[in-house]
Computed example of a mutant assay.
Amino acid sequence: MPVSTRSSQPMIEPNGDFMFKPISSWEHSIEVTMEDVSYLSRPFGLTENVDAKLGIETSDLYNDMLERQTDYVSAQTYSPTASYIPYRRYLVDWMSDVGEQCSLHTTTVHVSILFLDKIFRSADIPRNKWQLLATACLSVAAKYEEAEEHCPPIPDLLKLTKLSQVGHTSLSFREGEVEVLRLLGWRLRAVPPLHVIGYYLAKGSIFEADRWQGKELIEKIPKYIKKYAEFFCNLTLQEYSFQQYLPTQLAAAILYASRVSLQITPRWRPELEVLTGYEEKDIIPLFNHVWEYYEEQFPGHGARSISPRSVAGKEFQ
């Protein structure tokens, strides 16, 4: 549903719960210069140290994402003229719906779509195999990303997707999975922006020296940032043109858009530059693309607002 960019005040219900205020136009966000905030500030709202909790140096995981991200997405592999592109949005919608019905994590669906994009841009897949391979991508992604007990059984997938009605069996579906693995070169470590956003949020994406509409941050701001970041990740998943950007850089632009949406100032910080490896000038062009696509998808949104439930992604599939 359309989303407003005009209101300047958040909406707080009488019970203290937050309803997402309309996203304000980024051109009119409150300006705060770097001199107005401390150069170094502690993350706001983090209740635990993720490195200590996991017993690892999570920056190593980020370095691994930086190294592996081009396996699936890069300017060199970007192929906007691939024959399936006019139908891609329908495939994304359909796979998202199947993933939701199977109770798969959103990250699993994002990974499965990266699988599909890599296969479809590098091989000529007959139309009569699209549904089989799309479902097989979901199944392979689930087996790689989910706990074993959360992976949907093949008979359930065949019934849900109605593949059984066109003659597919568990054996033919397994052959479809093997074909997916072969076409992917058995390299299954895909890095969607949603994975990267999870790292950014866990390490701290807002800071004590930040301001929300010129005021001190409130307790639920980290929750709002997470919801907006997930919304923009789901939104950009729909459009293939965002695959011309590195996932880590797009994730940084999505974090930037989330801060702008909530009128967190300054828009970018030295701490975020250290965290992401990107300066503000590196991500402004991507942010502009994200924001323009958002406004294109929700025209005439000046009189409406979005709720936390809507930005979770369900209503934007």
Score class of each variant (00 low, 15 high):
Thr107Lys: 15
Gly99Met: 09
Glu100Met: 12
Ser305Trp: 10
His301Ile: 09
Val140Leu: 09
Glu230Gly: 04
Thr107Leu: 13
Tyr228Trp: 15
Asn49Gly: 03
Glu292Asp: 13
Arg304Gln: 12
Phe18Tyr: 14
Thr265Phe: 00
Ser305Gly: 12
Glu57Tyr: 09
Asp93Pro: 00
Gln9Gly: 00
Ile254Met: 06
Val50Gly: 01
Ala141Phe: 03
Ile119Lys: 01
Ser29Ile: 04
Phe120Arg: 00
Arg68Gln: 14
Pro22Phe: 02
Phe20Asn: 07
Pro14Glu: 11
Lys159Thr: 10
Ser103Asp: 15
Arg127Thr: 14
Ala190Phe: 05
Ser205Cys: 11
Pro86Cys: 10
Ser170Asp: 11
Ser170Gln: 11
Leu61Val: 15
Glu67His: 09
Asn234Glu: 12
Val111Ser: 10
Ser41Gly: 08
Leu40Pro: 00
Ala303Tyr: 08
Asp97Thr: 13
Leu286Gln: 13
Ala253Glu: 03
Ile23Pro: 00
Asp64Thr: 13
Thr161Cys: 01
Asp210Phe: 03
Leu188Gln: 03
Pro308Ser: 02
Glu216Cys: 07
Ala52Phe: 08
Trp94His: 09
Ala229Pro: 05
Pro153Ser: 05
Cys102Arg: 03
Gln244Ile: 11
Phe298Asp: 02
Leu54His: 13
Glu145His: 06
Trp186Leu: 03
Phe298Ala: 04
Glu13Arg: 11
Ser7Cys: 10
Leu275Val: 09
Thr276Val: 06
Leu250Phe: 10
Glu296Thr: 13
Thr107Met: 14
Arg187Phe: 02
Ala312Lys: 03
Leu157Asn: 00
Pro14Asp: 11
Ala142Asp: 05
Lys162Thr: 04
Asp60Tyr: 11
Ser112Ala: 15
Phe207Glu: 05
Gly176Val: 00
Tyr200Val: 05
Leu286Trp: 01
Ser261Thr: 15
Leu262Tyr: 11
His195Glu: 09
